[in-house]
């Protein structure tokens, strides 16, 4: 499928969704917020003045700040944890069960417990969100480390590559796909937990906006905030992650047009 066809399919799917939404809003007005009403609410949200020049900037920025700071911490902590588990059998047998136990704790419980321990402020969020995401990153990186190619390690050892060169040229490139997968799952899980934290504990951010308009039964405004953040996440994926991934994975043979020259 060429680029233009793919693009047309994407546009067609958006139009189909909007049409369905419009029809749904007309036939089931109690369940689905009408398309025109949602559009009107979105315009209000986007144009209301507030801190940082605009109200929606402020809340979206607060959510992004908490989400990405937590992701940053989790990526480092999870990578260290995963690589340690993958390289050290003693550590692996000691900790494996606990990693799965950690993964089994519902995020809601972690958020509530953080609030009791730390209080109803942003610090609870900065504690709870990395705590939820880290094991997912760790699990991914653990898998990646177990798959490291021992033949390549032996090759590097034979040629006398030092630790830094081996890490940079042999280990990191093998872990790169796992880093991307970790970041993507961390982003999608993290954004949901950030929302929980903001809705339950805080008085700013997109999550707080959801709760506020939920209390007012204002479905169109809730939809507007949802749209804003989903658009933001799509921009991050297509604008940053996908091109970066493609660049890092440039060496992979393309599915079509593989050039074999012998």
């Amino acid at each position: 499928m060429d680029r233009l066809t793919r693009y047309l399919y994407t546009v067609a799917s958006i139009i189909a969704l909007l049409a369905l939404w419009y029809v749904g809003g007309v036939t089931l007005p109690e369940v689905i917020p009408g398309l025109p009403e949602t559009y009107a609410a979105l315009v209000v949200v986007l144009t209301t003045p507030g801190p940082y020049g605009n109200m929606f900037y402020f809340h979206v920025w607060k959510t992004i700040e908490m989400l990405f700071a937590s992701l940053f911490v989790s990526m480092i902590a999870g990578t260290v944890l995963g690589v340690a588990l993958g390289r050290n059998e003693t550590l692996e047998s000691t900790l494996a069960t606990w990693i799965y136990a950690w993964l089994a704790i519902p995020s809601l419980v972690i958020v509530f417990v953080s609030a009791i321990w730390i209080g109803f402020d942003a610090s609870s969020g900065y504690f709870a969100i990395p705590l939820v995401i880290t094991p997912f990153v760790g699990l991914n990186m653990w898998e990646g480390t177990r798959n490291l190619d021992t033949d390549l390690a032996e090759m590097a050892e034979f040629f006398g590559a030092g630790r830094i060169q081996t890490f940079k040229d042999v280990v990191v490139p093998q872990l790169a796909p796992f880093l991307f997968a970790s970041f993507r799952s961390g982003l999608s899980i993290g954004w949901k937990i950030t929302l929980l934290v903001e809705a339950f504990l805080l008085t700013r951010g997109v999550g707080f906006m959801f709760r506020r308009y939920f209390d007012q039964y204002d479905l169109p405004t809730m939809m507007s905030w949802l749209i804003i953040f989903v658009v933001f996440l799509i921009v991050v994926e297509y604008g940053v992650l996908a091109p970066l991934h493609e660049r890092v994975m440039e060496w992979r043979p393309e599915a079509e047009g593989v050039r074999v020259t012998e």
Partner: peptide, 9 residues
């Protein structure tokens, strides 16, 4: 060229 685009030989 990248090795992935070369034949085994």
């Amino acid at each position: 060229n990248y090795p992935t685009r070369l034949s085994g030989g």
